[in-house]
Amino acid sequence: MTDVLEYLVAALSGGGIYALLTIGLALLFSVMGLMNFAYGELIMTGGFAMYLLRDAPWPLMIVGVLVAVVAVALLTERLAFRPLRGASPLTLLIAAFAVSIMLQNAARMTVGPRAKGVRPWLEETISIGGVGVQLLDLVTIAVALALIGGLVLLLRRTALGVQLRAAAEDFEMASLLGVKANRVIASAFAITGVLGAVAALMLILKQGSVSVTVGSVPLLIAFVGAVVGGMGSLVGAALGGFVLGAVTAVLDAALPGELAPFRDAFVFGLVIVMLATRPQGLVPAPEARV
């Protein structure tokens, strides 16, 4: 019984983080066909901001992380992806790859190649029904829910949200009606930045350290989640990300030592199978984008 609760909490918090990441990925993909391979580096940026601000008071650090990640996201949009607007999704993927390498090496050049520790927070375990649960996990679940809720509100209740959804469905028609492409895409990147910043905070607090490659594994899992869920659909992406994050977290806790290292192989094998059999994902988008 205690195991179940532990797994449940781990699944929810892991799933929550990855849902945030995959929504960010899916948003960019539906609006401009970009599979942002450099997304992991947003997490890296957040992590390094956490490290650089490790001695600052908590509110300042959180704000600092948000600002840093959103700034980097907007910067990559302006310098790398805006000139490539309208390019094929594949070109965009390669470009994102290049941006990822640039960001990683820029970090390597400035902050250094070695892993850095971050100040732990919310480490305490509290007792629920006699089971020890990490406070951090609970906070993660709450934050993830709040953010997703906020995003839904943004998309459904605000003019910007309507424009984003329209652009995500049919970018050309939206511009024909006067929706400003630059504003919409920049907002999408900014949203991605906020989601990435929060995910970075949660992930890195859990890990305890940050390095240049800290974003690689989350990125790949988020990728898989987006593909499995259906790249063009935000709901599908959230679902895919959640399922995958949850599965990964549970596997981490539950896999026998023998097979544990092969977790990633299973996960990626899953994405291959998914693409081969149901390329549009669990929840297909209104208009498939290849």
Partner: peptide
């Protein structure tokens, strides 16, 4: 345009409001 290109995922009202974007 030909084939209308209304936004299927948005409501009728949202579609209309988009027409007034400018």
């Amino acid at each position: 345009p030909e084939d209308r290109r209304i936004f299927a995922g948005l409501t009728v009202e949202e579609n209309l409001r988009l027409g007034a974007t400018t």
